[in-house]
């Protein structure tokens, strides 16, 4: 095994580090379980796993404050778990059950939680980008200092509406962090074959939006960059772009044969750069945790994930009447809307 390069100096407390380990592990185990349930036919349709990219959302959530919003695409399970949504509700939505966040009517790609300020879960590549800017528009209009994390991939970065949004977000100084989760493959097309530039974040420059590259396999680097971006937005300086270089170990979706890259490429990433292993090493090397401590965390996570799978299997399918509900609202949504 190639030598691992641990983060130079942890800028967080041992407790925080343990929390990141725990949060990333929850996403990893949850996604592995979702993959299993898909194989068993309990989850249908499209199911896009986040395995390998865990440090991105965990690092950025560490930089977020209460009330900050987030919106993303269809590879959304990790984002939901990282912002504190209930694994039971997420898993039960994957199985299309009454106990799911959308009562079984949204599925893997369409989940929301007003309580946790998670605004989806959107199935159209790139469509969440103007939505995220719109959320931040609302916050600026209402005069609060919240920030919206708007996640999209390297694939979405070639959609026109992303640049329409960059223009307006910069023009109107909207407090939005554009997070480009660059996992290097837009479905099966590598960045090299689809994107005219190597550094996607530089595409903000013509709009006057600063940006930087971040090592997405290093949760501490992500957190640090996130804090910088959030400070920029909260100071009223407008949007900020973080291009987070990450890697998805699994296929684009469960039905992806992944012929566009070699097994060796994936294995090398897992062996040398795995974000969870990195934090595990830091904890052990810094003597912040013992093997036994980590085993206890592993067990705790395993129990949570198993419980979510049980819940998702046992929760009943939605009542047939649900077909006809939630098409129209008869009252304005009660959420975090603030009187201007």
């Amino acid at each position: 095994m190639a030598a691992r390069k641990p983060a130079a100096k942890p800028n967080v407390s041992p407790e925080e580090l343990k929390q990141y380990y725990r949060d990333m592990l929850l996403i990893r185990r949850f996604e592995e379980k979702a993959g299993q349930l898909y194989g068993m036919g309990l989850i249908g349709g499209f199911c896009h796993l986040y395995i390998g990219q865990e440090a991105v959302v965990v690092g950025l959530e560490a930089a977020a404050s209460e009330g900050d919003k987030r919106v993303t695409s269809y590879r959304d399970h990790g984002h939901m778990l990282a912002c504190g949504m209930d694994p039971n509700g997420v898993m039960a939505e994957l199985t299309g059950r009454e106990g799911g966040y959308s009562r079984g009517k949204g599925g893997s790609m369409h989940m929301f939680s007003r309580e946790k300020h998670f605004y989806g879960g959107h199935g159209i590549v790139g469509a969440q980008v103007p939505l995220g800017a719109g959320l931040s528009f609302a916050d600026r209009y209402l005069g609060n200092d919240r920030v919206t994390f708007t996640y999209f991939g390297d694939g979405a970065a070639n959609q026109g509406q992303v640049y329409e949004t960059f223009n307006m977000a910069s023009l109107w100084k909207l407090p939005v962090v554009f997070v480009i989760e660059n996992n290097q493959y837009a479905m099966g097309t590598s960045q090299k074959r689809s994107t005219s530039t190597e550094d996607i974040h530089t595409r903000g420059a013509p709009f006057g939006i600063p940006g930087e590259v971040v090592d997405g396999m290093d949760v501490l680097a992500v957190k640090e960059a996130g804090e910088k971006a959030v400070a920029h937005c909260r100071a009223g300086k407008g949007p900020y772009i973080l291009e987070i270089k990450t890697y998805r170990y699994r296929g684009h979706s469960m039905s992806d044969p992944a012929k566009y890259r070699t097994r060796e490429e994936v294995q090398k990433m897992r062996d040398e750069r795995d974000p969870i292993q990195n934090v595990r090493d830091l904890l052990l090397q810094g003597k912040h945790a013992s093997e036994d401590d980590l085993k206890a965390i592993d067990k705790e996570i395993k129990d949570i994930v198993n419980a979510s799978a049980e819940f998702a299997k046992e929760s009943p399918e939605p009542a047939l009447e649900e077909l006809w509900t939630d098409i129209y609202a008869d009252a304005l949504p009660q959420g975090d809307a603030v009187k201007a």
Partner: peptide, 21 residues
């Protein structure tokens, strides 16, 4: 006033509605 950018400002409008406006 928006720029001439229907796809973008329609999306920003929808996002603003999600955000309580």
């Amino acid at each position: 006033d928006t720029p001439i950018t229907e796809h973008g400002f329609a999306g920003i409008g929808v996002g603003a509605a999600f955000g309580g406006l």
